[in-house]
Write a protein that binds this DNA or RNA. Structure first.
Lengths: 154, 154
DNA sequence: CTTGATGCAAAGGATTTGCACAAAT
DNA sequence: ATTTGTGCAAATCCTTTGCATCAAG
């Protein structure tokens, strides 16, 4: 088995569930994708291998409950990305107003600012924070250039 | 007409749309609610006044495009809150892991930190940011106390 | 073997759309 | 008058569920 999948196998089995071929295939699909996929898109990629749409949904839900994947909800549709063992502990996304894509953002250097924010909010509100979603709404670099023109740079 | 509604009337009419009784009623409903409402909940509150569900959806969409309301998507359902002319320019929410409520958070003092973050991200990624959604996932104060007990405070 | 997982199809729930009628400018 | 908005019901899209079968431990 793919070395990368071992920790997920353990997490799933520790929870009393079975690590099936379908789960392995779906996980690999998410891991190997450079963009965020929704259930249907995952299904389109794996349906040749005898996996039903319902199985994709069921497994995504299981993965999410186990903290293996993270769900991003955009316009009422759920997209998925790997959560743990990812290089980026903090997930910041930009939803482009123009092209509607969801873009992973470079969050290096932001983590420290975020931690400050996190702590401040926890103390102020007497809450406990497990996770955070930050979604910027704006123009991605490509659409920004299309709108203003590259020559208009200040 | 309610004094508070005047700017919305103007925004809607400036956009070439009509400011109908239904729109006024829906806006007032959102403004007067202390919690975030979804389309169905708004419909339940106004259906006695001869307003259809489809109208609620259509108008919410229009309000959102005009920047009058802001949509929060949680578990695949869209909830709405007033966006502009609100006391809080920055919308931070906590989705409670336990009771599933969406809670408005006190963001005073966070705004400045946010602005720094915003600027940093814009420059780093060559993007233009219009808006930001920050959603914390954690325990609200009530559920936190239920879980850990009030006596366990450090 | 026993239990959970699967595929399929049907059901469910949120949102959108087509259409004839009503209301706004 | 003309154009946009509306209510209703049907349609659509994403997601979940029931059930008979299959596969993992």
């Amino acid at each position: 088995m793919d070395r990368d999948l071992v920790p997920f196998k353990k997490m799933i089995e520790d929870n009393g569930n079975k690590f099936t071929i379908q789960k392995r295939t779906i996980l690999k699909t998410i891991m190997e994708s450079s963009v965020h996929l929704n259930a249907k898109e995952i299904y389109e990629k794996v349906k040749g291998e005898n996996i039903g749409l319902a199985t994709v949904y069921r497994n995504l839900k299981e993965f999410q409950e186990l903290g293996i994947v993270k769900e991003l909800n955009v316009n009422g549709i759920s997209y998925y990305e790997m959560k743990i063992f990812s290089k980026k502990p903090l997930h910041i996304h930009l939803k482009c107003y123009e092209c509607d894509n969801i873009i992973d953002m470079d969050s290096s250097g932001i983590d420290i600012e975020y931690l400050k924010l996190n702590k401040m909010v926890e103390e102020k509100n007497n809450m406990e924070i497990f996770d955070i979603d930050i979604m910027f709404i704006g123009l991605c670099s490509r659409c920004k250039e299309e709108r203003y023109g590259e020559t208009n740079k200040v």
